[in-house]
Amino acid sequence: RIVSFENVPHEEDVEEKIVEVYKSLLSLGMKEISFLNLVRGFDKPKKVTYYISILHLAYRKKLKVEQEKPYEDIRVILNERGD
């Protein structure tokens, strides 16, 4: 396999994924969503994508994340005034 530093493969578009995840969250029509339920059945990359997106959405005040103990389920609470 040829590795070329000049020929860098296309990097994932994080912003696009964030919007996608947010839409899917809104489409559920629930104010509070279990992260584990949300990503159940997803493969590892998709889980990572959802997790990163949720962190970004929390940073942008679209939602809140709450976790009682590390590595346990995360409650994703959508903010009402998010747009």
Binding site: K44, Y51, L55, P70
Partner: peptide, 28 residues
């Protein structure tokens, strides 16, 4: 992402209500 995908655990850092950093963690 490639780094995250190889990790055993991911600790996510974001900002909370009062602009303080908050952490969550997931196991991959």
């Amino acid at each position: 992402k490639p780094m995250l995908q190889e990790a055993d655990h991911v600790i996510g850092v974001t900002r909370g209500g009062e602009e303080e950093s908050i952490v969550t963690a997931i196991q991959l």
